[in-house]
Design a protein around this nucleic acid. Sequence first.
RNA 1: GCGCGUGUAGCUCAGUGGAUAGAGCACCCGCCUCCUAAGCGGGGGGUCGCAGGUUCAACUCCUGCCACGCGCACCA
Length: 566
Amino acid sequence: MCPPMLGEIKQQIAQIVTREHSAEAAGELSFRPVPATATGDIAIPVFGVARKAGIDPKTLASSLAGHIRALPGVAEVLAAGPYVNLSFDRAVFARRFIADVAAGEATALKPSGSRVLIEHTSINPNASPHVGRGRNAIIGDTIARLHRFLGHHTEVHYYVNDIGKQIALLVYACRGHEDLQFNDLLDQYVAISQQAKDDPAVEQIAFDLLNQFEQGDAAVRDEFRRVVDLCVNGQVSILGRLGITYDIFDRESNFLDDPRLQPVIEKLIDQGALITDEHGRQVIDLLQLGFTREEGRYVVLSRANGTSMYVARDLAYTIHKSEISAAANLSVLGEDHRLYQEQLDLILRWCGFATPDVIYYSFVLLKQGKMSTRQGNVVLLSDFIDLARDNAAARIRDANPGLSDDEIRELADTVAAGAVRYGILSVSPTKNVIFDLEESLRFEGNTGPYLQYSCTRIASILAKHGGAVPAVPASVPELNASEWALIMAMTRLQDEVRTAASSRNPSSLCAYGFELARAFNRFYHDSDVLDAPAAERAMRLNICAATGTVLSACLDVLGMQVPRRM
RNA sequence: GCGCGUGUAGCUCAGUGGAUAGAGCACCCGCCUCCUAAGCGGGGGGUCGCAGGUUCAACUCCUGCCACGCGCACCA
């Protein structure tokens, strides 16, 4: 739940409602921030409770306020119409919260024992990824981090599409270029795709290669493997610059002729849903499984030439994932996969298998329109990171004249990664985004570097202080508005992570991180730390240390690192 | 055509049925002899795509329309 102090008070309020009304009424309790027009630290709208209790909301609010007033740690309670607004005893609350943070109670949760499986990225191994592909990886990696924060054992899978027509074409294109580097592959891929479009003979070569692969030709398999590995290693190393990592790489070719597909095929045949058409293709007719539309009714399992389609392997792979997953089975897919996934889900559910919960994300568009690899109007993720790094390096050099080039480069990498991740994460996945390079390279205001900058300010104060942070004074000095607002902001981290995880949308956590950093910067502006009188100085050093802990935990969940200096 | 997604300030975006819809950027005005100005404070700027409906209460839920995006059998 929330940090202990806050959690205890909420729990006691729930007990009061249960005692005075019913457990059912207590279930309607909710807590929200108090709007700027009212005073207090937490607001309780009582509409739901009042409905269950059969009492007028205003009457309920004032009676509830009377009971809450007696709770320890609560300083003031006001019934404002149908709302109850309460204020905490700041000194008691602050002392307790700071102790909780130091004990690790306000940041990452203890192991839950649940297991979470998430598949993300899974880009075709054909070229350097553009920023749209990066969106998948960044969202997936962050959702994995959200679950790890919540204490779940989280396993990240990357499905490597190492077989298929596109890959066969690329393998063919790479023949005779044994010294090919990762960065050359994009050009090769674009060229061969065009050739295959113009010349059926080229396409036929790809199909022949596929056939040989599926028949188990060892030399062909080695050839595919070399090209695919070159690709995947290149892609993963670019994604690694953003702190993205994977636990397991599942190769699509391992799911060729998977025996687990047999029962599915048999069930489909029994249902009359699997037909072999006049061209010799194996086609599933989803209408036989309850599908209601004409569009997307048919799913082709294998080509007339006998080679299997992606969906055949994917059915087996999805069955595999459902067998090894426990509490949650997640996957991140582009919105163009929506119908495809609906088809897959229908088939598998009809056969009694669990299907993954999918997080869809929309495409990244350019001002000029869609990104298209073939037309060359793409922004490559690696180029984008490079620009962000150069931008950051220039500013770090200005602000820190004594640093070596190596140090600057390392710091700039951290800031660039933070800027890129935050820029993508702060927008809801379902939203189409228009990528504006200039806008994305901005480091002021609501951006990743703003959050990182706040951390370096904290680190700088603690470094100048030197040594251990003193104990919280026996008599806590009165807290000013920005000190208190900062402490209240800090208490929200765990709830914010939980919300982001359950909605599968990290953007709200970005907003929280920004609010927390802003609360710190207001505190920083309003209150001297090192030059303050002893008691205030001790208190503020503790507030700084706690903010450092909470804010960096938040950044960690977002996959951002804290630079030592900026 | 059918299905799914998205329309909130000039621009980019938050907003989980509840109090007067919020940020950032841009624009205007202030603040560095002071712990990092990638900062802080203030100002102007909104028929929440349009029209109905449900509700004590709708940006939020429902219906219709419009605009944009994505998809609709041998790509993955």
